[in-house]
């Protein structure tokens, strides 16, 4: 993996390293004339991916434990409050903190009414290995909600991290297939949590079972089998 990174002839000027890669600076020689060279190493096992212009590189693995990375959308559960901030469980090693004012239209007087156990769709705004991750429920520039915020009703199901990335791929068959059967609202968090809301309970159950069946970590079912599987359920 390291070789392939070095292979690319001209490193992009705006080289950005995503999850799974980190930069190591290795000092060469000592005393006078020492030079430091930047080396990129993989910090987790998986497939190395890059954007079309080779400016962004990241590693996609199929782990179950979520490691927060900046700008990723996640689904969290409020687990308490500490002062001005909410403590949110996002399935990572440490709870994340969410500023009570990081919502659209929130002011000191008017802040969202969250309870312990509320489910949130949020973006990771800060993820540093030595600090608690931080979340926000709005776009910091426009101060608009942009789809983030509290998720009311519905149900939260868990899947592998690989599955959550697959579902975010617009070319993946599952969500369009389910959407053609019945109307549904879905929010996919990259931390392996999926929020589903449908009109009827059995439709939500169908979504939960399909996600579990398609998950490469479990069933790994393909499109034809899922259609059959859906047909067997009485919807």
């Amino acid at each position: 993996m390291r070789d392939r990174c070095q292979e690319c002839p001209l490193p992009h000027v705006n080289l950005k390293l995503g999850p799974g890669l980190s930069e190591l600076s290795v000092a060469r020689g000592s005393g006078k004339g020492s030079s430091s060279q930047q080396t990129v190493v993989a910090t987790r096992a998986g497939i190395l991916n890059h954007s079309s212009n080779r400016s962004k590189w990241w590693v996609e693995g199929n782990s179950r434990r979520y490691v927060p990375a900046p700008q990723e959308s996640v689904i969290g559960v409020v687990s308490g409050r500490s002062g001005e901030n909410w403590r949110v469980d996002i399935g990572a090693a440490h709870p994340a903190s969410l500023d009570g004012l990081a919502f659209e239209g929130a002011t000191k007087r008017n802040r969202p009414n969250l309870k312990v156990g509320s489910v949130l769709y949020a973006r990771v705004s800060l993820a540093h290995k030595d600090m608690e991750p931080e979340l926000e429920c709005f776009d910091a520039q426009t101060r608009k909600a942009d789809g983030f915020g509290e998720l009311k009703g519905g149900f939260v199901t868990h899947c592998s991290l690989q599955m959550s990335r697959l579902l975010l791929d617009p070319k993946h068959f599952l969500l369009p297939l389910l959407g053609s059967r019945f109307p549904l609202d879905v929010a996919v968090g990259l931390n392996g949590r999926i929020w589903v809301s449908t009109k009827e309970a059995k439709q939500t159950i169908a979504v939960v079972r399909c996600v579990e069946a398609v998950d490469p970590d479990g069933g790994g079912m393909d499109e034809v089998s899922v259609k059959k599987f859906l047909g067997e359920m009485e919807l």
Binding site: D89, G117, L151, K152, A201, I205, V208, M233
Partner: peptide
């Protein structure tokens, strides 16, 4: 561990009232 979230709890109870379970 945190206890199940409010939507999870409400959904499971609602489904059980209709004699439905999450794994079918």
């Amino acid at each position: 561990p945190p206890s199940p979230s409010i939507p999870e709890k409400e959904f499971v109870y609602q489904a059980l009232k209709q004699s439905l379970r999450l794994d079918g």
